[in-house]
Each structure stands twice: as C-alpha cells, then as structure tokens.
Design a protein around this nucleic acid. Structure first.
Lengths: 128, 128
DNA sequence: CATTGTCTACGAAAGGATTCGTATATAATG
DNA sequence: CATTATATACGAATCCTTTCGTAGACAATG
C-alpha cells in the first residue's frame, strides 16, 4: 500500500512548487526555485529525474521538453510528515505536537475560531 | 544565537532516551535502544561521540566510563522541529499543521478538553 | 599474572542526498 | 545551412548519515 518513499527536503521544495503551479517544466520549476535558493538548472533536472524514478512525480515526455506533475497529494504528504514527526519527537502523541504548535504560535482570533469550529465538529462526531 | 544543528533521526532517538532516562552511559543508552532496533554497541558509541562534537550532548569523562547528558532541551527541540516542518511542508503556517494534525488524529474527550483549556488561555492573553 | 571482559578511539565502508560538468540531441535564428 | 540556445542524459564528486570492525587501555577474575 505504501508506494512512495518519504520525500527529502529538496524534493519537498520541488513538490511544493508543483502543487501550487501545477504541471511544469524543469525550467519553470527551476525559475521558481531560484527565488528561494541559488541552484543550477541541471541540479533541478537531476532531482526531478530522481523523483520520477521514485514515482513522486509523473512526467510526460511527448514533447522534447518534458512536463512534470506531482504524483502524491499535498494533503497526504503533510499527513505522513506529521506522523513521522509525532513518532520521532513526540512519542507518538499527536496531541503533544498540537499543543506545542499552538502554544508557540501567535494565534489570531480567526485562527482560534477555526480551531473551535473544528473541535465542535470533532465533538459532534463523538455524539453520533 | 543558533548553536546546535538539527539532530538527525538517529540522534533524536538517542536524545529521547537521554531525556527520559537522564544522564547515562553508552551501554545504558544502547540497552534501551536495542529494544526498538537492532544496533551494535560501537554504533551507538560513535553516534554519541558525534553528538558530543556537535554539542548536542555533554559528556563527563572523569571516570573511564563516560556519562552522557542531553545538552538541548526536549521542548526547544520539539519547537524547532515543528518550525522546520511548518516551513518545509506548510508554507510557514503553523495553523495549517495544527488543523491537519487535529483532523487526522482520533481525539479523546480529555484531549479536546485540554485544547479547549489552552484556547481559553490564549484568548485571555488577548484580552489583557 | 594471564585471561577475559568492557571501555574508548579511530578509521573506513556503505548508502543516500545534493550538486554540477560534460556530452549529445534538437530546435530556433540569422 | 551554420550558429546559437535549450533540452535531456549520464556520470562523477562531494557531503552527510549510519554502521561496524579493529586496536589499545584498563579493570576484573580465576
């Protein structure tokens, strides 16, 4: 069932670009990436080729310029990364992480409302 | 200000043992570690030596058998790891991570109460 | 006191992640 | 059509992490 390896940090940077930009060429990804860090074109190319081998991305090779596309969902990836962190640093307790993240974070009223909404949803589920 | 590198996964395993067990010898750490994974004594030794070089741990070399002790706080480490994850996978939004973690996690009533308590504390801070 | 056990130190192998130079193919341009 | 620009492929260097074998110091034991 687990088909995809955990993406590395560099791979995650590229995935985030693909998630927000949609299917892209290496050139396009590299252009966006260049804003956040200095990186050569062939470096990005190589990374994306490796990601294709790992099935983290698909690529369409119909035209000479290949088009790459994320093959894992942002939401699923975030979920897996959270689980890793929870296991590695919070002894498996997701709630510990939540409380830490909440406590350290400056929260706006809108965000608090958002959480309260989610909490009441969670409570409603329990009452069913 | 930033003195300590981000611990690797293996280093984090050892730190967790030091945090819960307190100052320990390599042998003691390795014994605990052996429960969760098969690992040779010298492997653990080497890792802990590296961690000492990185100042992630202190070691007392008064006696022949050295005593190691965590040199970074569990809480701070968790905070830094959360920040890394938030930056790398949640575009810097801690709230996104919280909502995800909450949503994916099966929450008990006690945990919900805990969060509600934290939220009202956060709200009180705002009213000051 | 010789043997056995336990410790640290050291070095190196193995694997993965990251970076980039170079070669080659192909398209675009004058 | 020659030149220039842009693409992929490939391989290698570098760096980091992880693992462990071996050697030497020292203590404990028979």
């Amino acid at each position: 069932m687990k088909k995809h390896p955990k993406p590395t940090e560099s791979e995650l940077q590229i995935l985030r670009i693909l998630w927000t930009e949609g299917p892209s060429t290496v050139r396009e990804v590299n252009n966006v990436l260049s804003v956040e860090k200095q990186v050569g074109y062939t470096t990005t190319l190589k990374l994306m080729q490796i990601m294709a081998e790992k099935n983290l991305v698909n690529r369409n090779t119909d035209s000479k310029t290949h088009i790459y596309q994320a093959n894992i969902l942002e939401h699923d990836t975030q979920k897996n990364l959270i689980k890793s962190l929870v296991d590695q640093a919070f002894g498996g307790s997701a709630m510990e992480l939540v409380l830490q993240a909440l406590g350290n974070h400056k929260t706006t009223n809108e965000e608090l409302d958002q959480i309260k909404k989610l909490i009441s949803q969670l409570e409603n589920v329990k009452h069913d």
